[in-house]
């Protein structure tokens, strides 16, 4: 069985991370931004799992870490959607550029 070289996976996760970051910076819709954040977390997850296989002293550490990250991502979405819903109820918008009461 041939393993996928670690560089390839790293490039893949970097691309995923970059797409997520690009999404958070350019999206108007707050739900879209939240999804982009999920992409960033998943890029980190891929890193953790692949490093668990290659460089880690104890392989299970990275995998357990990834499970924790999945749980945290779920919590972030729960809290995030709750806040977005509350915003929609009070302001009737979920577009990031229309949320501008607070300014210096």
């Amino acid at each position: 069985m041939t393993l996928i070289p670690v560089e390839h996976v790293l490039i893949f996760s970097l691309l995923l991370f970059a797409i997520g970051l690009y999404g958070t910076l350019t999206r108007r819709n707050i739900i879209g931004i939240l999804i982009s954040i999920e992409l960033m977390l998943n890029a980190a997850n891929i890193n953790l799992v692949v490093f668990a296989k290659t460089t880690s002293l104890s392989p299970e550490t990275g995998q357990v870490f990834a499970v924790f990250v999945i749980a945290i991502a779920a919590v972030t979405v729960a809290v995030g959607l709750a806040i977005v819903l509350a915003l929609y109820r009070s302001r009737k918008t979920i577009f990031a550029d229309e949320v501008h009461l607070l300014k210096w």
Binding site: I30, M40, A43, N47, G80, L87, A96, V99
Partner: peptide
């Protein structure tokens, strides 16, 4: 205002945690 603050905090904070996790 509180809702807006929470949304801004959430978005900035989550992006920064994403970067930190990476």
């Amino acid at each position: 205002k509180a809702k807006e603050a929470a949304v801004k905090y959430l978005l900035f904070g989550s992006v920064c945690s994403g970067i930190m996790l990476y």
